[in-house]
Design a protein around this nucleic acid. Structure first.
Lengths: 146, 146
DNA sequence: TATTGTTATACTCTATAACTATA
DNA sequence: TATAGTTATAGAGTATAACAATA
């Protein structure tokens, strides 16, 4: 058994290190959790969306999405309102303060990402994305099989 | 902001999926936590080691290593004894039951790893390891800089 | 009856630092 | 005074499922 070269271990260590290197930007300066960051990022992309859409888009449990959104609402960063077509559903969108925050955070976070990926050569960078996608698809297949 | 293509997000989602696809083997059948699995894997590799060596080798905090080892000892899978040269230190090694368990688990876990990586072409597989190592080194550099 | 989203609860994990015993 | 390892404790995060409102 060679733990250092065991793929799931390496991936876990890498994801943790990358997360710590990136999360600093939104954690320390603005007190956002990772879940809140994901929700804001999704909203910056989608404009507005239902809670259910966000929980899928952000790979969060619906409960985590619900709590994250409640927290973001309390901070005045997003607004929730009833959906027109289904009154059980809530539609979420960024408040001006949320838009302003994201306008500030996104460039910083993308700069971090660029710095991380600058360690790779062009070929590596081009291959990495598709490779990760293939492994993810395979992992999800395995998870379903049990 | 494109969350789906944000590298730290993709990595976190992938690591989680891979972990779930793999952890099943040692979690469900034997009630091991991820920390315990790492410690056992390191011991299977190193034969015997100090607590401190294990906590570095497994990327665990010394407290997590200490607790994991205490739990493994309670389960009769490892034994701890005082080190000869430094009586503050503990030397840990696998008990026969631990060796037997690992002889059973390791092939299953490696088979899972192979299945995961079978989604990749030869070129991709050859490039992935070094690419992940470069990004990890870069992330650790960034973490130190702050 | 099923679904959307929220809330409750208990449980686990984590982080910090205090502590014991050696060195 | 510093180090190896353990223990304490409080806070954060997680999982399960119950729940209210609506479909």
């Amino acid at each position: 058994m060679d733990l250092q070269n065991f793929f799931p271990y390496r991936l876990a260590v890498l994801a943790e290190a990358v997360s710590q290197a990136t999360a600093r930007v939104y954690t320390e300066q603005h007190g956002l959790t990772r879940d809140e960051w994901r929700l804001l990022a999704a909203l910056a992309e989608l404009g507005s969306a239902r809670t259910g859409t966000l929980h899928e888009h952000c790979t969060l449990e619906k409960m985590q999405a619900s709590r994250g959104l409640a927290s973001l609402e309390a901070k005045g960063l997003v607004a929730r309102s009833q959906a027109d077509d289904d009154r059980r559903a809530h539609v979420v969108q960024l408040e001006p303060a949320g838009r302003k925050l994201m306008a500030e955070l996104v460039p910083k976070v993308l700069a971090r990402q660029a710095l991380l990926l600058s360690a790779l050569g062009d070929e590596e960078r081009a291959m990495l994305g598709p490779a990760l996608a293939k492994v993810l698809a395979q992992a999800q297949r395995l998870r379903q099989l049990g």
